[in-house]
Design a protein around this nucleic acid. Structure first.
Lengths: 166, 166
DNA sequence: GAGGAATTACTTGATATCAAGATACTTGAC
DNA sequence: GTCAAGTATCTTGATATCAAGTAATTCCTC
């Protein structure tokens, strides 16, 4: 059994043995799987007129519960992006009528980004399709592999977040 | 023990129980870890004046062995990108004197992208630092988790590649 | 309170990427 | 041999992202 990354590691070993490419068994595989997964998921979001990042914003607002409102800073942190990127996402979503920017009564520097009714019903539809598709994708994994993977990734994430690296 | 994704899944469960967000335990965690990893790795490549994608091209050429030459199509496939993206990467690398475009004697539609001596020594230096950094990153994982992760990701990649999905 | 440091959202200019299409060449069916 | 279909690279126009910097506001220390 051999995947792309396994072949690449063998190439490094034979062509430039001075380096140890074995971290690729984890990191390059994660990166490539992720690229493919993102492509597939974004095809699904496109059915709802959304890009992946748009869904991410709407979903963050929706799952935050009533009154479906957060500050741009909270959205920026949750998405691991820069503030400029969030500004332009919000511009787009506002133009589409899916969110609206309101003044923040508690801090005049800040705003409150509210999910509109239209935004709420769209994100609920999109989320249902999205999570179904994700569940489908995970069916190529044996149940015990999925379970193990959840645990390993949780420990990894937890440690990085603890360190403040993430 | 709770990471960002665990909190998000709990939010979905409490705010919109109609969807099952549990695939996020795998997929969202992979995506977030990947984003963080890419940021850290690209900071390292920047020390050599390279972006991650530049390194990817040079490394693919280097590990292909003598005469360190591939066609743009092969580089495009290996990187999971579009041909237009590869064209502009090659423009940049050519301007930096790290690769050169030569005619392909076997197919006049095609080219051969050759690694220059300068490109070769740069990519060798960068690769050494890169794989050391990757090894360092993986130290947060317990050895048995790393081993298990390698196996699970290999099976997953292999199945996707088999299906032609990837 | 007063004043400096920190925070918030946004702007700007540069770059990376993609989808779609253009052009030149090769392959294969007949 | 001819020509249609396929392939290889590049071009174009649009979008997403980032880093760095700005202006308004709040927080903190004294």
């Amino acid at each position: 059994m051999s995947d792309h990354v396994a072949r690449v590691v063998r190439q490094w070993k034979s062509e430039y043995p001075e380096v140890d490419a074995s971290p690729m068994y984890v990191l390059a595989r994660m990166m490539r799987l992720n690229m493919q997964i993102n492509k597939d998921l974004s095809a699904n979001f496109a059915k709802f007129g959304l890009a992946t990042g748009d869904f991410d914003v709407l979903a963050t607002l929706r799952r935050s519960g009533e009154p479906y409102a957060l500050r741009p800073t909270e959205l920026t942190r949750s998405s691991m992006l820069t503030s400029g990127t969030m500004t332009s996402r919000l511009d787009k979503l506002e133009k589409l009528g899916l969110v609206c920017r309101n003044p923040n009564p508690e801090d005049r520097r800040a705003l409150m980004i509210h999910l509109t009714d239209k935004g709420r019903s769209l994100v609920e539809e999109a989320a249902a399709a999205h999570f179904e598709m994700e569940a489908e994708m995970l069916k190529v994994l044996d149940p015990q592999d999925r379970k193990a993977l959840e645990g390993i990734l949780e420990r990894w994430s937890h440690r990085l977040e603890e360190n403040g690296t993430m």
